[in-house]
Design a protein around this nucleic acid. Sequence first.
DNA 1: TCTGGGGTCCTAGGACCC
DNA 2: TCTGGGGTCCTAGGACCC
Length: 451
Amino acid sequence: MAAADHSALPQSAVPPSGLTRTGFVRTIFHVDMDAFFVSVEELYDPSLKGKAVVVGGQRDERGVVSAASYEARKFGVHSAMPLRTAAKMCAHAIFVNGHPERYREFSEKVYKVLGTFSPQVEMASIDEAYLDMTGTERLHGPPLKCAHALHERMKAETRLNCSVGIGTSRLIAKVSSAQAKPNGVLYIVPGQEAKFLAPLDVREIPGVGKVMESHLHALGIKKVGDLARLEESELEDRFGKWGLALAGKSRGQDAGGWFDNEVGADLDAKSISHEHTYNEDTADVNQLEATLMRLSEMVCRRLREANFYARTVQLKLRYKDFTTITRAHTLTSPTQLDTEIFEQIRMLFRKNWKKGMQVRLLGVQTSHFAEQPEQINLLESTRQQRWKDALAAADKLRDKYGESSVKLAAGMRGTFRERTHENPASLPGKGKSKAEWDKTGSAKPDSSKSG
DNA sequence: TCTGGGGTCCTAGGACCC
DNA sequence: TCTGGGGTCCTAGGACCC
Protein backbone atom coordinates (compact mmCIF):
# COMPACT_ATOMS: atom_id res chain seq x y z
CA MET A 1 0.00 0.00 0.00
CA ALA A 2 1.31 3.42 -0.92
CA ALA A 3 2.01 5.50 2.13
CA ALA A 4 0.06 8.44 0.77
CA ASP A 5 -3.05 6.48 -0.09
CA HIS A 6 -5.17 7.30 2.90
CA SER A 7 -8.38 6.09 1.32
CA ALA A 8 -7.37 2.63 2.50
CA LEU A 9 -7.24 3.65 6.15
CA PRO A 10 -9.47 1.70 8.49
CA GLN A 11 -11.73 4.61 9.26
CA SER A 12 -14.79 3.59 7.34
CA ALA A 13 -16.74 2.42 10.39
CA VAL A 14 -16.34 5.71 12.19
CA PRO A 15 -15.59 8.73 10.06
CA PRO A 16 -13.12 11.28 11.48
CA SER A 17 -14.14 13.92 14.00
CA GLY A 18 -16.70 11.68 15.63
CA LEU A 19 -19.40 11.90 13.00
CA THR A 20 -21.58 8.89 12.42
CA ARG A 21 -22.46 7.86 8.92
CA THR A 22 -25.67 9.78 9.20
CA GLY A 23 -23.80 12.91 10.22
CA PHE A 24 -24.61 13.16 13.93
CA VAL A 25 -21.88 13.74 16.44
CA ARG A 26 -21.33 10.60 18.46
CA THR A 27 -21.53 10.85 22.23
CA ILE A 28 -19.58 8.13 23.97
CA PHE A 29 -19.35 7.70 27.73
CA HIS A 30 -16.54 5.80 29.36
CA VAL A 31 -17.43 4.79 32.91
CA ASP A 32 -14.55 3.61 35.06
CA MET A 33 -15.02 2.45 38.67
CA ASP A 34 -12.61 4.06 41.14
CA ALA A 35 -10.16 1.62 42.77
CA PHE A 36 -12.76 -1.06 42.12
CA PHE A 37 -11.34 -4.09 43.96
CA VAL A 38 -10.30 -2.00 46.95
CA SER A 39 -13.69 -0.27 47.12
CA VAL A 40 -15.54 -3.59 47.04
CA GLU A 41 -13.31 -4.95 49.82
CA GLU A 42 -14.10 -1.86 51.87
CA LEU A 43 -17.80 -2.59 51.63
CA TYR A 44 -17.17 -6.01 53.17
CA ASP A 45 -14.76 -4.64 55.78
CA PRO A 46 -15.38 -0.94 56.51
CA SER A 47 -12.35 -0.82 58.79
CA LEU A 48 -10.22 -0.73 55.61
CA LYS A 49 -11.60 2.69 54.71
CA GLY A 50 -9.04 5.44 54.39
CA LYS A 51 -6.14 3.07 54.92
CA ALA A 52 -3.32 1.88 52.69
CA VAL A 53 -4.79 -1.31 51.21
CA VAL A 54 -3.23 -3.69 48.71
CA VAL A 55 -5.44 -6.31 47.01
CA GLY A 56 -3.90 -9.36 45.37
CA GLY A 57 -2.25 -11.48 48.03
CA GLN A 58 -0.11 -11.47 51.16
CA ARG A 59 3.06 -9.41 51.57
CA ASP A 60 5.45 -12.37 51.32
CA GLU A 61 3.75 -14.13 48.41
CA ARG A 62 4.87 -14.64 44.85
CA GLY A 63 2.49 -12.45 42.93
CA VAL A 64 1.60 -8.91 41.98
CA VAL A 65 -0.70 -6.15 43.15
CA SER A 66 -4.17 -6.31 41.60
CA ALA A 67 -5.27 -2.99 43.03
CA ALA A 68 -4.07 -0.44 45.56
CA SER A 69 -6.02 2.17 47.53
CA TYR A 70 -5.27 5.81 46.86
CA GLU A 71 -3.64 5.89 50.30
CA ALA A 72 -1.21 3.13 49.27
CA ARG A 73 -0.57 4.77 45.91
CA LYS A 74 0.90 7.77 47.73
CA PHE A 75 3.78 5.49 48.64
CA GLY A 76 4.37 4.47 45.04
CA VAL A 77 2.39 1.25 45.12
CA HIS A 78 0.54 0.50 41.89
CA SER A 79 -1.06 -2.47 40.19
CA ALA A 80 1.18 -5.08 38.53
CA MET A 81 3.92 -4.37 41.07
CA PRO A 82 5.29 -7.44 42.88
CA LEU A 83 3.65 -7.86 46.29
CA ARG A 84 7.02 -8.05 48.00
CA THR A 85 8.03 -4.73 46.47
CA ALA A 86 4.79 -3.15 47.60
CA ALA A 87 5.44 -4.44 51.13
CA LYS A 88 8.82 -2.71 51.18
CA MET A 89 7.51 0.57 49.81
CA CYS A 90 4.55 0.68 52.13
CA ALA A 91 5.26 -1.41 55.21
CA HIS A 92 2.09 -0.42 57.04
CA ALA A 93 -0.21 -1.40 54.17
CA ILE A 94 -2.91 -3.99 54.77
CA PHE A 95 -2.64 -6.91 52.33
CA VAL A 96 -5.90 -8.53 51.26
CA ASN A 97 -6.53 -11.58 49.11
CA GLY A 98 -8.68 -10.97 46.05
CA HIS A 99 -12.31 -12.16 45.91
CA PRO A 100 -13.23 -12.52 42.24
CA GLU A 101 -16.79 -13.65 42.98
CA ARG A 102 -17.41 -10.38 44.82
CA TYR A 103 -16.03 -8.34 41.95
CA ARG A 104 -18.13 -10.21 39.43
CA GLU A 105 -21.22 -9.67 41.52
CA PHE A 106 -20.60 -5.92 41.75
CA SER A 107 -19.69 -5.77 38.08
CA GLU A 108 -23.15 -7.08 37.27
CA LYS A 109 -24.70 -4.43 39.50
CA VAL A 110 -22.73 -1.80 37.61
CA TYR A 111 -23.88 -3.26 34.31
CA LYS A 112 -27.51 -3.06 35.41
CA VAL A 113 -27.23 0.59 36.40
CA LEU A 114 -25.62 1.45 33.06
CA GLY A 115 -28.36 -0.40 31.22
CA THR A 116 -30.90 2.10 32.55
CA PHE A 117 -29.10 4.85 30.63
CA SER A 118 -28.44 3.26 27.27
CA PRO A 119 -29.22 0.03 25.44
CA GLN A 120 -25.73 0.16 23.98
CA VAL A 121 -23.51 -0.80 26.91
CA GLU A 122 -20.24 -2.62 26.53
CA MET A 123 -18.29 -3.83 29.54
CA ALA A 124 -14.67 -3.38 28.46
CA SER A 125 -13.43 -5.19 31.56
CA ILE A 126 -14.75 -6.07 34.97
CA ASP A 127 -14.74 -2.44 36.14
CA GLU A 128 -15.20 -0.23 33.09
CA ALA A 129 -17.69 0.22 30.29
CA TYR A 130 -18.49 2.18 27.18
CA LEU A 131 -21.94 3.61 26.55
CA ASP A 132 -23.13 5.01 23.27
CA MET A 133 -25.29 7.94 24.34
CA THR A 134 -25.73 9.37 20.85
CA GLY A 135 -29.19 10.82 20.40
CA THR A 136 -30.34 10.44 24.01
CA GLU A 137 -30.50 14.15 24.83
CA ARG A 138 -34.30 14.27 24.78
CA LEU A 139 -34.44 11.45 27.28
CA HIS A 140 -31.47 12.22 29.51
CA GLY A 141 -30.61 15.84 28.85
CA PRO A 142 -27.25 17.17 27.72
CA PRO A 143 -24.15 14.99 28.26
CA LEU A 144 -22.87 16.59 31.46
CA LYS A 145 -26.23 16.54 33.16
CA CYS A 146 -26.73 12.95 32.16
CA ALA A 147 -23.29 11.96 33.38
CA HIS A 148 -23.92 13.47 36.79
CA ALA A 149 -27.22 11.63 37.05
CA LEU A 150 -25.43 8.41 36.13
CA HIS A 151 -22.75 9.08 38.68
CA GLU A 152 -25.35 9.61 41.41
CA ARG A 153 -27.40 6.58 40.54
CA MET A 154 -24.28 4.45 40.48
CA LYS A 155 -23.39 5.58 44.00
CA ALA A 156 -26.95 5.02 45.23
CA GLU A 157 -27.30 1.54 43.73
CA THR A 158 -23.81 0.12 44.28
CA ARG A 159 -22.26 2.35 46.99
CA LEU A 160 -19.28 2.71 44.66
CA ASN A 161 -17.65 5.74 43.10
CA CYS A 162 -16.95 5.98 39.42
CA SER A 163 -15.50 8.47 36.99
CA VAL A 164 -17.07 9.36 33.68
CA GLY A 165 -15.37 10.59 30.52
CA ILE A 166 -17.41 11.92 27.62
CA GLY A 167 -16.25 12.42 24.07
CA THR A 168 -16.94 11.91 20.41
CA SER A 169 -14.92 8.69 20.25
CA ARG A 170 -14.06 5.77 22.51
CA LEU A 171 -10.55 7.08 22.72
CA ILE A 172 -11.53 10.53 23.93
CA ALA A 173 -14.02 9.07 26.40
CA LYS A 174 -11.43 6.69 27.80
CA VAL A 175 -8.66 9.23 28.10
CA SER A 176 -10.96 11.80 29.67
CA SER A 177 -12.32 9.39 32.29
CA ALA A 178 -8.72 8.78 33.35
CA GLN A 179 -8.21 12.54 33.68
CA ALA A 180 -11.44 12.82 35.66
CA LYS A 181 -10.28 10.38 38.34
CA PRO A 182 -11.07 10.03 41.11
CA ASN A 183 -14.81 10.45 41.37
CA GLY A 184 -15.19 13.02 38.60
CA VAL A 185 -16.86 13.77 35.31
CA LEU A 186 -15.13 15.27 32.29
CA TYR A 187 -16.72 16.29 28.99
CA ILE A 188 -14.60 17.04 25.95
CA VAL A 189 -16.69 19.29 23.74
CA PRO A 190 -16.80 18.21 20.09
CA GLY A 191 -14.04 19.91 18.16
CA GLN A 192 -11.75 20.27 21.18
CA GLU A 193 -10.26 16.76 20.97
CA ALA A 194 -6.81 17.66 19.68
CA LYS A 195 -6.51 20.55 22.09
CA PHE A 196 -7.39 18.28 25.01
CA LEU A 197 -4.90 15.59 24.02
CA ALA A 198 -1.96 17.78 23.03
CA PRO A 199 -0.47 18.43 26.50
CA LEU A 200 -0.83 14.81 27.69
CA ASP A 201 2.06 12.32 27.80
CA VAL A 202 2.03 9.86 24.89
CA ARG A 203 1.70 7.12 27.52
CA GLU A 204 -1.88 8.30 28.17
CA ILE A 205 -2.93 6.94 24.78
CA PRO A 206 -4.39 3.46 25.19
CA GLY A 207 -2.08 1.03 23.43
CA VAL A 208 1.07 3.00 24.11
CA GLY A 209 2.99 1.03 26.72
CA LYS A 210 6.53 1.02 28.02
CA VAL A 211 8.12 -0.10 24.76
CA MET A 212 6.28 2.25 22.42
CA GLU A 213 6.82 5.09 24.85
CA SER A 214 10.57 4.64 24.82
CA HIS A 215 10.61 4.39 21.03
CA LEU A 216 8.75 7.66 20.85
CA HIS A 217 10.94 9.31 23.47
CA ALA A 218 13.97 8.32 21.39
CA LEU A 219 12.46 10.38 18.58
CA GLY A 220 11.96 13.32 20.91
CA ILE A 221 8.22 12.73 21.08
CA LYS A 222 6.96 13.19 24.62
CA LYS A 223 3.50 14.71 24.34
CA VAL A 224 0.52 13.75 22.22
CA GLY A 225 0.84 17.15 20.57
CA ASP A 226 4.32 16.23 19.33
CA LEU A 227 2.82 13.13 17.81
CA ALA A 228 0.00 15.00 16.10
CA ARG A 229 2.50 17.28 14.36
CA LEU A 230 4.23 14.35 12.67
CA GLU A 231 3.43 13.21 9.16
CA GLU A 232 1.26 10.10 9.08
CA SER A 233 3.57 8.58 6.50
CA GLU A 234 6.54 8.94 8.82
CA LEU A 235 4.73 7.14 11.63
CA GLU A 236 3.67 4.44 9.22
CA ASP A 237 7.19 3.97 7.90
CA ARG A 238 8.56 3.62 11.40
CA PHE A 239 5.85 1.62 13.14
CA GLY A 240 3.79 0.06 10.36
CA LYS A 241 0.08 -0.38 10.75
CA TRP A 242 0.31 0.61 14.38
CA GLY A 243 1.98 3.90 13.53
CA LEU A 244 -0.90 4.76 11.24
CA ALA A 245 -3.44 4.08 13.97
CA LEU A 246 -1.32 6.13 16.34
CA ALA A 247 -1.51 9.12 14.04
CA GLY A 248 -5.30 8.95 14.17
CA LYS A 249 -5.33 8.50 17.93
CA SER A 250 -3.20 11.57 18.46
CA ARG A 251 -6.08 13.52 16.92
CA GLY A 252 -8.73 11.75 18.94
CA GLN A 253 -9.94 9.27 16.35
CA ASP A 254 -10.79 5.63 16.97
CA ALA A 255 -8.38 4.50 14.30
CA GLY A 256 -8.32 0.81 13.70
CA GLY A 257 -8.93 -2.49 15.41
CA TRP A 258 -11.32 -3.00 18.25
CA PHE A 259 -11.83 0.74 18.72
CA ASP A 260 -13.76 0.88 15.48
CA ASN A 261 -16.44 -1.50 16.67
CA GLU A 262 -19.91 -0.27 17.39
CA VAL A 263 -20.43 0.07 21.14
CA GLY A 264 -22.15 -3.03 22.44
CA ALA A 265 -21.38 -5.18 19.41
CA ASP A 266 -21.29 -8.79 20.49
CA LEU A 267 -17.75 -10.02 20.43
CA ASP A 268 -17.20 -13.73 20.84
CA ALA A 269 -14.26 -14.91 22.87
CA LYS A 270 -11.18 -15.76 20.81
CA SER A 271 -9.42 -17.88 23.39
CA ILE A 272 -9.94 -19.53 26.77
CA SER A 273 -6.98 -20.26 29.01
CA HIS A 274 -5.82 -21.00 32.52
CA GLU A 275 -2.34 -20.87 33.94
CA HIS A 276 -0.68 -21.47 37.26
CA THR A 277 2.49 -20.17 38.86
CA TYR A 278 3.93 -22.38 41.58
CA ASN A 279 4.77 -20.91 44.93
CA GLU A 280 8.00 -22.82 44.57
CA ASP A 281 9.50 -23.93 41.26
CA THR A 282 9.33 -27.65 40.61
CA ALA A 283 10.82 -30.28 38.30
CA ASP A 284 8.60 -33.12 39.55
CA VAL A 285 6.95 -34.69 36.48
CA ASN A 286 4.00 -35.99 38.46
CA GLN A 287 3.27 -32.62 39.92
CA LEU A 288 3.72 -30.89 36.56
CA GLU A 289 1.45 -33.27 34.68
CA ALA A 290 -1.14 -33.16 37.44
CA THR A 291 -1.22 -29.39 37.11
CA LEU A 292 -1.68 -29.70 33.35
CA MET A 293 -4.57 -32.09 33.96
CA ARG A 294 -6.22 -29.66 36.34
CA LEU A 295 -5.71 -26.71 33.99
CA SER A 296 -7.09 -28.74 31.07
CA GLU A 297 -10.17 -29.58 33.11
CA MET A 298 -10.73 -25.94 34.04
CA VAL A 299 -10.39 -24.85 30.43
CA CYS A 300 -12.67 -27.58 29.10
CA ARG A 301 -15.30 -26.81 31.64
CA ARG A 302 -15.48 -23.28 30.35
CA LEU A 303 -15.52 -24.53 26.76
CA ARG A 304 -18.59 -26.60 27.57
CA GLU A 305 -20.28 -23.70 29.35
CA ALA A 306 -19.76 -21.53 26.28
CA ASN A 307 -20.56 -24.41 23.93
CA PHE A 308 -17.27 -23.93 22.12
CA TYR A 309 -15.16 -26.59 20.47
CA ALA A 310 -11.48 -25.72 20.27
CA ARG A 311 -9.24 -26.59 17.33
CA THR A 312 -5.97 -25.24 18.66
CA VAL A 313 -4.41 -26.26 21.95
CA GLN A 314 -1.42 -24.41 23.36
CA LEU A 315 1.00 -25.22 26.16
CA LYS A 316 2.79 -22.44 28.00
CA LEU A 317 5.93 -23.25 29.93
CA ARG A 318 7.95 -20.82 32.02
CA TYR A 319 11.23 -21.92 33.56
CA LYS A 320 12.86 -20.77 36.77
CA ASP A 321 14.84 -18.11 34.92
CA PHE A 322 11.61 -16.72 33.44
CA THR A 323 12.33 -17.84 29.88
CA THR A 324 8.97 -18.73 28.43
CA ILE A 325 7.96 -20.89 25.52
CA THR A 326 4.61 -21.64 23.93
CA ARG A 327 3.93 -24.72 21.81
CA ALA A 328 0.71 -25.18 19.89
CA HIS A 329 -1.02 -27.97 18.06
CA THR A 330 -4.04 -27.75 15.81
CA LEU A 331 -6.46 -30.68 15.78
CA THR A 332 -8.24 -31.96 12.71
CA SER A 333 -11.46 -32.20 14.67
CA PRO A 334 -12.35 -29.58 17.32
CA THR A 335 -13.10 -30.74 20.85
CA GLN A 336 -14.24 -29.72 24.32
CA LEU A 337 -13.32 -32.98 26.05
CA ASP A 338 -10.85 -32.99 28.96
CA THR A 339 -9.24 -36.22 27.83
CA GLU A 340 -8.53 -35.02 24.30
CA ILE A 341 -7.22 -31.61 25.30
CA PHE A 342 -5.08 -33.12 28.03
CA GLU A 343 -3.67 -35.74 25.68
CA GLN A 344 -2.44 -33.01 23.32
CA ILE A 345 -1.12 -30.88 26.15
CA ARG A 346 0.77 -33.79 27.65
CA MET A 347 2.30 -34.63 24.29
CA LEU A 348 3.44 -31.04 23.82
CA PHE A 349 4.80 -31.03 27.35
CA ARG A 350 6.75 -34.26 26.99
CA LYS A 351 8.18 -33.13 23.68
CA ASN A 352 9.29 -29.70 24.86
CA TRP A 353 10.05 -29.74 28.57
CA LYS A 354 13.77 -29.98 29.22
CA LYS A 355 13.84 -32.80 31.71
CA GLY A 356 14.97 -31.79 35.16
CA MET A 357 14.60 -28.08 34.49
CA GLN A 358 12.74 -26.24 37.24
CA VAL A 359 9.37 -24.92 36.13
CA ARG A 360 7.81 -21.74 37.42
CA LEU A 361 4.56 -21.61 35.43
CA LEU A 362 2.36 -23.85 33.30
CA GLY A 363 -0.52 -22.75 31.13
CA VAL A 364 -3.17 -24.30 28.89
CA GLN A 365 -4.82 -22.24 26.19
CA THR A 366 -7.45 -23.14 23.63
CA SER A 367 -8.46 -21.10 20.62
CA HIS A 368 -9.74 -21.27 17.07
CA PHE A 369 -13.27 -22.08 18.15
CA ALA A 370 -15.95 -23.81 16.15
CA GLU A 371 -19.58 -24.23 17.16
CA GLN A 372 -19.76 -27.93 16.35
CA PRO A 373 -17.12 -30.52 15.63
CA GLU A 374 -17.16 -32.29 12.31
CA GLN A 375 -18.91 -35.60 12.66
CA ILE A 376 -16.60 -38.57 12.66
CA ASN A 377 -17.44 -42.26 12.59
CA LEU A 378 -20.30 -43.58 14.66
CA LEU A 379 -18.29 -45.63 17.14
CA GLU A 380 -16.05 -42.69 17.90
CA SER A 381 -18.99 -40.35 18.36
CA THR A 382 -20.86 -42.58 20.84
CA ARG A 383 -17.67 -42.93 22.81
CA GLN A 384 -17.37 -39.14 22.84
CA GLN A 385 -21.00 -38.75 23.81
CA ARG A 386 -20.42 -40.91 26.88
CA TRP A 387 -17.54 -38.70 27.92
CA LYS A 388 -19.67 -35.65 27.34
CA ASP A 389 -22.45 -37.00 29.57
CA ALA A 390 -20.01 -37.92 32.29
CA LEU A 391 -18.39 -34.50 32.18
CA ALA A 392 -21.70 -32.69 32.26
CA ALA A 393 -22.55 -34.63 35.41
CA ALA A 394 -19.19 -33.75 36.90
CA ASP A 395 -19.70 -30.06 36.11
CA LYS A 396 -22.99 -30.17 38.00
CA LEU A 397 -21.40 -31.75 41.05
CA ARG A 398 -18.68 -29.14 41.01
CA ASP A 399 -21.31 -26.42 40.97
CA LYS A 400 -22.86 -27.95 44.06
CA TYR A 401 -19.94 -29.09 46.13
CA GLY A 402 -16.97 -27.12 44.87
CA GLU A 403 -14.24 -27.46 42.31
CA SER A 404 -12.31 -30.19 44.07
CA SER A 405 -15.20 -32.60 44.67
CA VAL A 406 -14.86 -34.41 41.35
CA LYS A 407 -11.68 -35.67 39.73
CA LEU A 408 -11.12 -37.76 36.65
CA ALA A 409 -9.22 -40.93 37.40
CA ALA A 410 -6.41 -40.03 34.99
CA GLY A 411 -5.52 -36.95 36.99
CA MET A 412 -5.76 -38.51 40.44
CA ARG A 413 -2.29 -39.67 41.29
CA GLY A 414 -0.20 -36.55 41.17
CA THR A 415 -3.12 -34.24 41.69
CA PHE A 416 -3.81 -35.31 45.22
CA ARG A 417 -0.22 -34.83 46.16
CA GLU A 418 -0.10 -31.38 44.66
CA ARG A 419 -3.29 -30.29 46.29
CA THR A 420 -2.37 -31.44 49.74
CA HIS A 421 0.94 -29.77 50.15
CA GLU A 422 0.86 -26.98 47.71
CA ASN A 423 -2.71 -25.93 47.70
CA PRO A 424 -4.46 -26.87 50.91
CA ALA A 425 -7.12 -24.21 50.47
CA SER A 426 -8.68 -26.17 47.64
CA LEU A 427 -9.45 -29.22 49.74
CA PRO A 428 -13.14 -29.91 50.27
CA GLY A 429 -14.71 -27.55 52.74
CA LYS A 430 -12.05 -24.87 52.46
CA GLY A 431 -13.64 -22.91 49.66
CA LYS A 432 -12.08 -21.79 46.41
CA SER A 433 -8.33 -21.50 46.23
CA LYS A 434 -6.52 -18.54 44.80
CA ALA A 435 -5.26 -20.74 42.01
CA GLU A 436 -8.78 -21.18 40.83
CA TRP A 437 -9.36 -17.51 40.28
CA ASP A 438 -11.57 -17.43 37.32
CA LYS A 439 -11.90 -14.03 35.81
CA THR A 440 -14.77 -14.84 33.51
CA GLY A 441 -16.09 -11.62 34.96
CA SER A 442 -13.66 -9.72 32.84
CA ALA A 443 -15.83 -10.54 29.90
CA LYS A 444 -19.21 -8.99 29.41
CA PRO A 445 -21.55 -10.09 32.20
CA ASP A 446 -23.87 -12.72 30.90
CA SER A 447 -27.34 -11.32 31.30
CA SER A 448 -28.95 -14.66 30.52
CA LYS A 449 -27.37 -16.06 33.67
CA SER A 450 -28.08 -13.19 36.01
CA GLY A 451 -31.63 -12.54 35.07
C1' DT B 1 11.82 -5.32 43.25
C1' DC B 2 11.99 -10.42 41.11
C1' DT B 3 8.22 -10.43 38.08
C1' DG B 4 -0.20 -13.12 38.46
C1' DG B 5 -3.84 -14.40 35.44
C1' DG B 6 -6.96 -13.67 31.75
C1' DG B 7 -7.39 -11.75 27.59
C1' DT B 8 -6.62 -9.09 22.56
C1' DC B 9 -4.07 -7.91 18.58
C1' DC B 10 0.05 -7.78 15.57
C1' DT B 11 4.23 -9.54 13.16
C1' DA B 12 6.96 -12.63 10.75
C1' DG B 13 8.42 -16.83 8.68
C1' DG B 14 7.44 -21.28 6.56
C1' DA B 15 4.31 -24.51 4.24
C1' DC B 16 1.31 -25.13 0.68
C1' DC B 17 -1.68 -24.04 -3.21
C1' DC B 18 -2.93 -21.70 -7.45
C1' DT C 1 17.00 -22.60 -15.06
C1' DC C 2 15.36 -18.78 -13.14
C1' DT C 3 11.78 -16.48 -11.29
C1' DG C 4 7.00 -14.59 -9.88
C1' DG C 5 3.20 -13.25 -6.70
C1' DG C 6 -0.92 -13.76 -3.86
C1' DG C 7 -3.60 -16.00 -0.41
C1' DT C 8 -4.32 -18.75 3.56
C1' DC C 9 -3.12 -21.49 7.41
C1' DC C 10 -0.13 -22.52 11.16
C1' DT C 11 3.21 -21.48 14.75
C1' DA C 12 6.03 -18.57 18.09
C1' DG C 13 6.75 -14.56 20.29
C1' DG C 14 5.79 -10.06 22.06
C1' DA C 15 3.31 -5.58 23.30
C1' DC C 16 -0.40 -4.17 25.69
C1' DC C 17 -4.69 -3.86 28.80
C1' DC C 18 -7.16 -4.50 33.33
